[in-house]
């Protein structure tokens, strides 16, 4: 007889363990998760009339996923992932990197909230941020794409002479380039905020486990 909410309880626990061990080498991570999964299966096999409370007690005895991940890190001689504090610096970096690129990038590198990889993405992907895009649009808007002179005789037009303008292919690639200039800073901003949320969530779970000492 299985507990009424067995799968929710167990999957929730394993999902948290998976989340807490993201920074571990994949082999060790897999071994830990397999071991814990096997443990749960074996422990349930020796509980004849299982209730939700039995399961919760079983998982309590196993330990908090954050503690197991920390134990694995210690056994591997790994450092605990640095805790991230969200402040003016992070929000500034997030807002300013797409808008005012140089200032945003300085804040981005000053913050601990992103990994080196994220910082490089933030630095390299938006080519100057939306500021550059706006400048590019502005310059393009000023330069006439095509100028035509209408030759008229006795008030009625007889010929049109056009000069300048871009061949169609160049025009399209220019449009694509402008679109990328516009889209990349925004996409990078979205990516950075997702990474920031992931980091801060990890921090919160780490704090939660510290509040309840083993």
């Amino acid at each position: 007889m299985t507990a009424p909410h067995a799968s929710q309880i167990i999957n929730g626990y394993l999902a948290r363990l998976s989340d807490e061990t993201k920074d571990l080498p994949s082999r060790e991570r897999g071994e830990l998760i397999d071991g814990v999964r096997e443990h749960i299966t074996e422990a349930r096999a020796v509980t004849p009339e299982e209730t939700d409370a039995d399961l919760l007690n079983l998982l309590d005895r196993l330990g908090d996923p954050a503690d197991l991940a920390e134990e694995e890190r210690q056994r591997l001689g790994m450092a605990t992932p640095r805790q991230v504090k969200l402040g003016v610096l992070e929000i500034g970096a997030l807002v300013l990197t797409p808008l005012v690129w140089p200032v945003g990038v300085i804040l981005l590198w000053a913050s601990d909230a992103w990994s080196i990889r994220d910082k490089l993405i933030g630095t390299l992907l938006p080519p100057g941020g939306l500021f550059t895009s706006a400048t590019a649009f502005f310059i393009l808007g000023l330069s006439p794409a095509q100028s035509c002179v209408v030759v008229s005789r006795n008030g009625s037009p007889v010929a049109t002479h056009c000069s300048g303008g871009l061949p169609p292919l160049a025009g399209i690639s220019l449009l694509v380039g402008l679109f990328l200039l516009l889209a990349l800073p925004i996409l990078t901003g979205i990516y950075m905020s997702i990474q920031l949320r992931r980091h801060s969530r990890r921090k919160q779970t780490a704090m939660g486990s510290m509040a309840a000492p083993a």
Partner: peptide, 12 residues
């Protein structure tokens, strides 16, 4: 005290 900590140990 925390049963799950046996698994990181066994792995090591």
């Amino acid at each position: 005290t925390t049963e799950g900590t046996i698994y990181p140990l066994l792995s090591r």
